[in-house]
Amino acid sequence: MTRIGAIFNPYTHSPDEFLAAVRDAEAAGVPELWLWEDCFRQSAFAAAAAALARTERLKIGIGIAPMPLRNVAATAMEIATIERLFPGRLLPGVGHGVLPWMGQVGARVASPLTLMREYVPALRGLLAGDELDVDGRYVTLRGVRLDAPPVTPPRVYAAAEGPKTLRLSGEVADGTVLDSGHTPEEVAASVRAIREARSETGRDGAHDIVAYVMAAFGPDAEARAIADVGERDDPHRRAVWGEPSEVAAGTRAFFDAGVDEVILLPASRGDLAAFYAGSGEVARLVGAA
């Protein structure tokens, strides 16, 4: 099933604008609003809980929170608490984090891949209600079990960019978040790597792949979208823009590349409420196609 969501960007909009953005997104019919946690901006889990408390239907995706910043038990407690308060509306994701930032807070690890290989299965196990003993390089648990795990554990997403991380996300996570700025062909190559790794490890169940895509609506939409893509080859193939019908048509190439969901990233210098209105219409058009 193809799905459309939108993003709240903490670089172009401040935390003071977040709750208004959440209300605008739900009113516009945006099914999912995604955010992320970059040092040293806004907390992902606090923002997610506040957004869910102010809305009725909107799902909140965290794509992503950095693993090195939190003990896996603390992350499991955060997710479990939010999931029990707002069942089925949290889409939690984790990732390596920006390595220089992790170094600033004394949390940088020598092997981010090893951390993900230990952390994500432990997180999934705790959310499933398992009691875990783990003696890893970075994750250590001694008889740890959540007292109130989610009734239905949410999918745990992992952010992935390089070839090794892409494959690892397919092996250990329930879904993968792909960053913006890629052509459909680049996205297709990432999807193949994820799904091949998952198949090789014999994992059961579907693996949900989410792709962020730069988008713009309204006047000078093309110029704004291309400017935010930056100096890359074929910039016109790395973004979508125009009227909602044109944006909906533009997302087709990314769905054809194999992703399950396209999350629209608002280009700079645009009105956020108008962006969510456009994104809601794109979601309706894609859902009806």
Rank of each mutant, 00 (worst) to 15 (best):
I82A: 07
E171H: 01
D24Q: 10
T251P: 01
S111R: 08
I4F: 05
G162R: 10
L285M: 12
Y276G: 04
A80W: 05
A65P: 08
R89F: 02
P235T: 05
L272F: 11
I62N: 06
R155D: 09
D260Q: 10
A28D: 06
G270N: 08
L285T: 09
W101H: 15
M77F: 14
A197V: 04
I4K: 08
A47V: 10
A65N: 06
P235N: 11
A193F: 02
W241L: 08
I209L: 01
A160K: 02
A73Y: 03
M102Y: 02
R195T: 09
Y276I: 01
P219A: 12
A148T: 14
I62L: 14
G93V: 06
P163C: 03
G162M: 09
V259Y: 03
N71W: 04
G280Q: 06
M214F: 14
A53T: 15
Y138F: 09
S180R: 10
L99I: 09
V187K: 07
A216P: 01
A28I: 08
L115F: 00
G143T: 08
I60K: 08
V191F: 01
A44W: 12
R3G: 10
P68C: 13
L264M: 07
V286M: 07
A239N: 06
V120Q: 00
I4E: 07
T176V: 09
F217P: 07
D179G: 12
T81P: 14
L146Y: 07
E37D: 15
A76K: 02
A80D: 04
L58R: 08
G29P: 04
A277Y: 07
D256L: 06
E78M: 15
A6Y: 11
A65Y: 11
A160D: 03
P149E: 05
P100L: 03
A267M: 14
I79S: 01
R41L: 14
G218L: 14
V240P: 02
A223N: 09
A274P: 08
Y157N: 02
A47S: 15
A76R: 04
D256G: 04
S268D: 13
I82C: 11
A160F: 02
F217A: 12
A80S: 14
D228T: 11
A128I: 03
I82S: 13
R142E: 09
E37W: 13
D256K: 02
E118G: 01
R137F: 00
D174P: 00
A211I: 09
G88S: 13
L91R: 02
T165N: 13
V109Q: 04
F254A: 04
D174K: 00
W34V: 14
A288C: 04
Q104G: 04
V187S: 05
V262C: 10
D220K: 15
A107E: 06
Y157A: 02
Y119T: 00
V262R: 03
V72Q: 03
L127A: 13
G242L: 08
A216T: 03
A65K: 06
V22Q: 04
G162W: 10
R155V: 03
T201A: 10
A215V: 03
I263K: 05
H96N: 12
N71S: 11
R203P: 05
V151E: 15
G143N: 11
E171G: 00
G280A: 13
Q104V: 13
P100S: 01
D130G: 00
A215S: 13
E56P: 03
D133T: 03
G181S: 11
E246P: 05
L115C: 00
A277S: 13
G278S: 05
T81E: 12
A122T: 05
A274Q: 15
K164G: 07
G278Q: 09
R89N: 11
